[in-house]
């Protein structure tokens, strides 16, 4: 009955298939494969198994979404941070729970480090929020009533003449006139008393 364990020679065949032998040893194995049909069959079989395994691993890798890789890298970074940090002191359970958001870093990590770490993780959100807030602040500064920048904004908005929601002139009739020149617009309500024979 043949020994199921790989012999020293079988091990060499495996190393040959995996390209792990040095040049001299590899040459020797190739000579043996040329002479020994059994060794040739073993090498072919090992080659097929390696190819199958490699193909399977490549397919499995393709199936992992890119963000999973991001997560893996973050985990690695986290482990590196933990390894670099001094051993954490005992943290009460309730404190640990309350700091769950910050638990990526050791409990005694400095506040600045925690903040920068959080900013690093939320960089995209923070930049977007800052840009939005800046734009809105600029609009607010320019558009505020009575501010120095009010005029350009109001000029940009289409001018609407005065409108009258209600007008009552008990003692006469009225006429409305809109006046406009380079100094701006104006509206005039002229009331002609009833006892006036001739109006304007």
């Amino acid at each position: 009955m043949a020994d199921p364990k790989p012999t020293g020679t079988d091990l060499e065949l495996m190393q040959h298939v995996d390209g792990e032998l040095d040049e001299a040893a590899d040459r020797e194995v190739e000579l043996r494969i040329g002479r020994d049909p059994d060794a040739r069959a073993k090498v072919d079989a090992l080659g097929e198994v390696s190819e199958l395994l490699r193909g399977h691993l490549e397919l499995a890798t393709d199936a992992v979404p890119a963000r999973r890789f991001d997560q893996i890298w973050r985990e690695i970074d986290k482990q590196l941070d933990l390894a670099a940090a001094p051993a954490p002191a005992a943290v009460p359970a309730e404190r640990a729970a309350s700091e769950s958001v910050m638990m990526v870093l050791p409990a005694q990590a400095s506040l600045w480090r925690r903040v920068t770490h959080w900013l690093d993780r939320k960089r995209g959100y923070v930049i977007t929020a800052m840009v939005s807030a800046g734009a809105v602040a600029a609009i607010a500064l320019v558009a505020r009533p009575g501010g120095t920048g009010a005029a350009p904004v109001e000029q940009a908005v289409a001018h609407r003449p005065a409108e009258l929601e209600a007008l009552d002139t008990p003692g006469g009739t009225w006429t409305m006139m809109n006046v406009s020149d380079e100094d701006g617009a104006a509206t005039v309500i002229w009331v002609t008393p009833e006892d006036t024979v001739e109006g304007l």
Binding site: E154, L164, L167, G171, G172, V188, I189
Partner: peptide
């Protein structure tokens, strides 16, 4: 008016920075 009579009761809506005038003839000099 100077005689206490209501000349005008208006509810205008106008642009800030625009002038709004109400006017009538004077009682003694039409």
């Amino acid at each position: 008016g100077a005689d206490g009579k209501r000349v005008l009761d208006a509810k205008p809506d106008f642009q800030t920075g625009d002038w709004f005038f109400v006017g009538t003839s004077t009682p003694n000099a039409k």
